[in-house]
């Protein structure tokens, strides 16, 4: 499910959910579970951690609905919660094994098994895992979740100029990592 589906319905659903309407609370969870999972999965590179982070994010979304400012973008607000949860997970990993890399990288299929398309995808995802999370998150929100620059700025609570510069630097770092892995454009 993409986030532009049902956008018109959203303000009314938020108001109803705040009033305790069970159907609207379920609607919000249903609508955000996939985007939040995709984001967490790409930030954490682990199915299990991404699932936990998604559940925590959605529970927090329901608990803190009262605090949501309706002048803001709801997607940005939800991704902001998910992002903070992912940061906490990275910290937990570092505390668990401070001498090891904080990332959990999947062992994908061997290159022989990969088609050109999936090879490119595999290289790109591996390159994403190589760059720092502060750069990875802007690329994930922009390229995979299709958030606008303004929405990313809201989700990360950063000025537009900072987001823009971060995306430029992130692309440069990603391209370097991608090419170092033998990826082709």
């Amino acid at each position: 499910m993409r986030l532009h589906d049902g956008r018109d319905e959203l303000p009314a659903r938020i108001r109803l959910a705040r009033a305790g309407d069970a159907g609207s609370r379920a609607w919000l969870v249903q609508r955000w579970q996939e985007p939040v999972y995709r984001f967490c999965r790409r930030m954490l590179s682990s199915d299990e951690d991404a699932l936990d982070a998604t559940q925590d994010t959605l529970v927090k979304m329901l608990h803190h609905l009262e605090q949501f400012d309706e002048r803001r973008n709801f997607s940005s607000w939800v991704f902001g919660i998910a992002r903070n949860r992912c940061i906490d997970e990275h910290r937990r990993r570092k505390r668990r094994s401070p001498d090891e890399p904080g990332e959990i990288v999947d062992s994908g299929p061997s290159p022989v098994e990969l088609t050109a398309r999936s090879q490119r995808a595999d290289h790109l995802l591996s390159a994403l895992d190589e760059i720092p999370p502060m750069y990875r998150e802007v690329l994930v929100l922009y390229h995979f979740e299709h958030l606008k620059y303004g929405e990313i700025a809201e989700a990360l609570d950063l000025p537009m100029g900072t987001v823009m510069n971060r995306i430029f630097r992130a692309r440069k770092k990603l391209r370097e990592a991608y090419e170092a892995m033998g990826g082709t454009q």
Binding site: Q33, R42, L174
Partner: peptide, 22 residues
Amino acid sequence: LAVAFASVDDPVLPIDLVDQVL
């Protein structure tokens, strides 16, 4: 890297979380 981004499939949510979250 537009082609490479387009070649990446979305991760699929393995289970429906609605009941658990509620």
